[in-house]
C-alpha cells in the first residue's frame, strides 16, 4: 500500500466507497432491484416478484440469449484469430535487423493504424458501412445472421489486435531464437512457444471481445434480421415499450451470462502459471 498511516488508509477507503458506490455499484444494484419489482412508485421498489425472470428465461427471450451468446462466440473467435494473426504479422514487419526494410516497417505501422480505425469510428458508422457494403452483389448478407456476427467481429477485432500486439512487444525474442536454434520451423515455434507464451493475453483479449460483443447495440440495431435478435436489442425493445422491469430482468440475465463466460475464460491457462 502506498498510504502508510492508519488515518490515511481509512480516508482512502472512504474516498473509494464514496466514488465507487454511486458510480459503479448503485446503478447495477438498482437494475437487480428493478428486475424483482412488481411496482416502483416510491423511493424503493415494492411487490417482490420473480415473474420477470420466468418471462426472461423462456421463449423468445431465451432464444435472444442464445443468439447473443452465439454471436459473441463467433465474433470473438474471428476477432481473436484475425487480430492475433495481424498483430504477429505487424510485429514481424516492424522488427529491426534481419531482412526488414523501411517499406516493411511502414507496412507494420500502417497495420497498427488500420486496426485502430474501428475503435475510433462510432459503431453506428461501422454498422451502416457493413450494411451498405454487403447489400449488393456479389456478397449479399443483408438479413442473415452472418452480417451481425461480421459487424461484431469488425468492431472487436481492434481490441484483440491491440492487446495481443502489446503482449508480443513484451515477449522476449530469446525464446523464439532458442527454439529456432533447436531446429524448430517457424510454424512449430509459433504453435509450441509463442502462442502458449501469449496465452494469458489471448484469453484476456477473448474475454474483452466477448463482453464487448454481448453488449453491442447500436450497430446491431441496423443489421439484425427478425430471426436473429440479440439480447441487447430485446432489452431496448422492452424498455422502449415501457416494460422496464422486464428489461431489467433481461439485463441481469445478460450481465450474469457475460460474467459467467468471462469467469470461464479466465480459467484457461497453460499448465504452469509463470511470471
Amino acid at each position: 500500500m502506498l498510504v502508510h498511516s492508519r488515518k490515511g488508509k481509512w480516508a482512502t477507503w472512504a474516498l473509494f466507497f464514496v466514488l465507487f458506490l454511486p458510480l459503479f455499484a448503485l446503478p447495477l444494484l438498482v437494475i437487480v432491484a428493478a428486475s424483482f419489482a412488481g411496482h416502483w412508485s416510491g423511493a424503493f421498489p415494492s411487490g417482490f416478484t420473480g415473474e420477470h425472470y420466468s418471462a426472461a428465461t423462456r421463449g423468445e427471450s431465451l432464444q435472444a440469449l442464445t443468439t447473443s451468446l452465439l454471436t459473441a462466440l463467433g465474433a470473438s473467435l474471428i476477432a481473436l484469430t484475425a487480430g492475433t494473426w495481424a498483430a504477429l504479422a505487424a510485429a514481424r514487419l516492424k522488427q529491426r535487423g534481419d531482412g526488414t526494410t523501411r517499406l516493411s516497417r511502414l507496412c507494420g505501422r500502417t497495420l497498427d493504424t488500420l486496426f485502430m480505425l474501428p475503435v475510433a469510428v462510432p459503431s453506428v458508422v461501422v454498422g451502416l458501412a457493413v450494411l451498405v457494403a454487403f447489400s449488393k452483389p456479389p456478397m449479399i448478407l443483408n438479413g442473415t445472421s452472418t452480417i451481425v456476427v461480421l459487424a461484431h467481429a469488425i468492431l472487436v477485432t481492434a481490441f484483440a489486435y491491440q492487446s495481443v500486439a502489446a503482449a508480443i512487444v513484451r515477449l522476449d525474442p530469446a525464446y523464439e531464437q532458442a527454439a529456432a536454434s533447436l531446429g524448430a520451423r517457424p510454424a512449430y515455434v509459433l504453435w509450441r512457444v509463442k502462442l502458449p507464451l501469449l496465452l494469458p493475453s489471448l484469453t484476456a483479449a477473448a474475454g474483452l471481445c466477448f463482453a464487448l460483443s454481448m453488449g453491442e447495440l447500436s450497430a446491431t440495431m441496423m443489421l439484425y434480421p427478425p430471426d436473429w435478435t440479440p439480447l441487447p436489442v430485446r432489452i431496448y425493445a422492452a424498455t422502449d415499450r415501457g416494460a422496464t422491469f422486464t428489461g431489467a430482468a433481461l439485463a441481469v440475465v445478460l450481465m450474469t451470462a457475460t460474467l459467467l463466460v468471462l469467469f470461464a475464460v479466465s480459467r484457461i491457462r497453460t499448465k504452469a502459471p509463470y511470471r
Binding site: D172, A174, Q177, A178, A179, L182, G183, V193, L197, K271
Partner: peptide, 14 residues
C-alpha cells in the same frame, strides 16, 4: 544444425 545456449537461458517457462 547448431546448439545454442544464451546468457539468460531462455528455457521455455511453460
Amino acid at each position: 544444425g547448431i546448439g545454442m545456449v544464451v546468457q539468460q537461458y531462455a528455457l521455455f517457462p511453460h
